[in-house]
């Protein structure tokens, strides 16, 4: 039927499509270790075509209504595991969660965003993922469910390295929980013509608490986080001096990976440029608009 080689075919597996969260969790429990969860499938099928993974069971969550919901409750935006990225491209998300909006806009292309999901991008656990740095900068949490229980953990620390995630085989990241606070934010990506970033910068500034999180992605196995509390810079007070401090900090403390796509020095320059651009957007341009 197909041309035969990798890329064109998928390894054999048994496809399961539960109709409820309860059924999903039972089936995940039953086939623990031999099953992969598929939401949009864009990431999983790519890995399977390249024979990087070959699970015995693929469990689709496309018919699980509980994971399809996008709701605001108690000052938190809960994004279900099967909410497509294109559903997050609305005007209200743009205004209330600018970092998320801009990160989503940077993921692949609009057609893929009709298929892929935010939680799927996080669960794929690749260093060049866009969801992970953005969610860390917004101090999001993840709801992880399994048959008998569920837990809520900070998104920061969930991804341990390439393809490694702090979620057990019988667990699923059921929702991403993003706090709705007064924020300014941006997400910048340098991708050099590809969809994979050579370096990305997510910056979220909580205007009431007057603190920020600057997260650098795609430059090392896990994102590099710079918190206001670690550095004590006040861009709102004295922009020029603090930008110099930021530049010095990046020069001394950030050591990006050296690989076939770019050298460490090149990435370092890109990170410097993106970080300066991000603080300028968030602390000068957006402040002037507000």
């Amino acid at each position: 039927m197909s041309f035969g080689g990798p890329y064109f075919t998928l390894p054999k597996f048994k496809y399961l499509r539960p109709d409820s969260l309860e059924e999903l969790l039972s089936s995940l429990h039953e086939h623990s270790g031999n099953a992969k969860i598929m939401s949009g499938g864009v990431g999983l099928l790519a890995f399977m075509k390249e024979r990087l993974t070959a699970p015995e069971y693929v469990i689709s969550i496309s018919k699980v209504p509980e994971l399809k919901t996008l709701q605001i409750k108690g000052g938190v935006l809960a994004v279900g595991a099967n909410v497509h990225l294109s559903e997050l491209e609305s005007g209200s998300i743009k205004n209330s969660l600018p970092t998320l909006y801009r990160a989503v806009k940077n993921i692949a292309d609009p057609t893929i965003r009709n298929m892929g999901t935010l939680v799927g991008d996080l669960a794929e656990a690749v260093p060049w993922g866009d969801a992970y740095p953005a969610l860390i900068s917004m101090e999001a949490e993840a709801e992880i469910s399994k048959k008998s229980s569920s837990r809520v953990v900070p998104v920061n620390g969930l991804v341990l390295g390439l393809g490694q995630i702090n979620v057990d085989d019988d667990e699923i990241i059921s929702r991403a929980l993003i706090p709705l606070r007064k924020v300014r934010g941006t997400y910048l990506k340098f991708a050099n013509g590809s969809e994979y970033g050579l370096a990305t910068v997510a910056l979220t500034y909580f205007t009431e608490e007057k603190r920020f999180n600057l997260v650098i992605g795609s430059a090392s196995e896990t994102p590099i986080t710079i918190r206001e509390s670690d550095v004590d810079w006040d861009f709102d007070k004295d922009f020029g001096t603090n930008v110099e401090k930021l530049e010095r900090y990046l020069q001394l403390n950030v050591n990006p990976v050296d690989d076939l796509l770019a050298s460490s020095d090149f990435r370092k320059n890109v990170i410097r440029y993106l970080s300066l651009q991000a603080v300028k957007e968030v602390f000068l341009d957006e402040r002037d608009q507000n």
């Binding site: 890329y7 064109f8 075509k49 292309d109 609009p110 298929m115």
Partner: peptide, 23 residues
């Protein structure tokens, strides 16, 4: 065959999707 070129795009319930990345 890997969701990059988009030449296999079809409309599924009026949404463009890449058919090479769909079961």
């Amino acid at each position: 065959w890997r969701g990059e070129c988009g030449l296999c795009t079809v409309l599924i319930d009026n949404k463009p999707m890449k058919s090479c990345m769909l079961l």
